[in-house]
């Protein structure tokens, strides 16, 4: 009998961390699969996503923010925006969510061994990059330097601030944060992420850059990277689209002839530039 891809597992919320507050608040949730579903059915790679949901409300595709090594706990950072994410924000520790997946392709991290990794993230776009960073740190000797370029609108919109402080301690991990507008007490860069990237000027030599954030940021970051001498094959991004099924059937997440849910969400710029824009 064939498996039914629409039937989700149940997962319990193990821990909730309020990352940011306000209208577009972000929470990071650790969830634990129930009924031993985790062991075999939820093997994933950094870059993949999962359909999180609440029965009676619906589902949203969310990128996995944890590393595969984190055993039976999966981490998701979720911005409160629509119906489903608002309901998830209303949940408490111990509440049940539904989960399907993992879906999509992933960053070819095994091809990037011994390379330097630069991540360029904006806002909630840092979530899939967090999975990559954690993976690389798990296999620290396999990779070169890690530069994390990350920005948000304001200090209170930055995710994972406490984590960045720990990351920087002698691990050849360099964190470069930015906020869009000046704030009292902020000593790091003020301005947009692409400008911070230009200021840092990562060397294209033996380096892979992964960028994720709002569409306009991705476009500008890629432009700046090309200007810095990066090749199309050195630049990766992960795309976001509205999704319902997550398995290449409901139709809406296509970019050209590819489905972001199934053929993506990870694309090299070499692939991306052959695709039409919508």
């Amino acid at each position: 009998m064939m498996e039914n891809p629409y039937i989700p597992h149940q997962a319990v919320i193990d821990r909730i961390k309020q990352e940011t507050t306000g209208d577009r608040a972000i929470k990071t949730l650790d969830v634990k699969l129930q009924n031993n579903a985790s062991d075999k059915s939820f093997q994933f790679h950094p870059g993949q996503c999962a359909m999180l949901g609440i029965l009676g409300v619906g589902e949203s595709m969310i990128s996995i923010a944890s590393a595969p090594s984190q055993n039976d706990i999966l981490t998701f950072s979720i911005m409160k925006l629509g119906r489903v994410t608002s309901e998830i924000h209303a949940c408490e520790e111990g509440d049940l969510l539904t989960i399907r997946g993992p879906y999509g392709n992933y960053f070819p991290l095994s091809d990037w061994k011994n390379k330097n990794i630069v991540t360029v993230g904006g806002g909630i776009g840092q979530a899939p990059l967090r999975s990559v960073i954690r993976y690389v740190l798990d296999k620290r000797n396999d990779y070169g330097d890690v530069d994390i370029i990350y920005g948000a609108r304001s200090v209170s919109d930055l995710c994972y601030r406490d984590e960045f402080e720990k990351l920087e301690k002698g691990n050849k991990v360099y964190v470069h944060l930015s906020i869009d507008e000046e704030e009292e007490g902020w000593k790091q860069f003020v301005g947009f992420v692409p400008d911070n990237l230009l200021r840092i000027k990562p060397s294209p030599n033996n380096t892979i850059v992964i960028t994720c954030g709002p569409p306009i940021m991705i476009t500008l970051v890629i432009k700046k990277l090309i200007g810095l001498g990066f090749q199309d094959t050195q630049i990766y991004t992960t795309l976001e689209k509205r999704m319902k099924c997550g398995i290449g059937k409901c139709g809406r997440c296509n970019v050209g002839s590819l489905y972001v849910c199934k053929d993506g969400p990870v694309f090299s710029y070499q692939q991306l530039k052959t695709l039409p824009e919508t």
């Binding site: 009676g56 409901c250 139709g251």
Partner: peptide, 16 residues
């Protein structure tokens, strides 16, 4: 063949 998925729920019971 494009489709939407929506939940319908009344008093804790429902269908997708």
């Amino acid at each position: 063949y494009c489709f939407d998925i929506q939940d319908e729920i009344i008093r804790g019971k429902g269908k997708r």
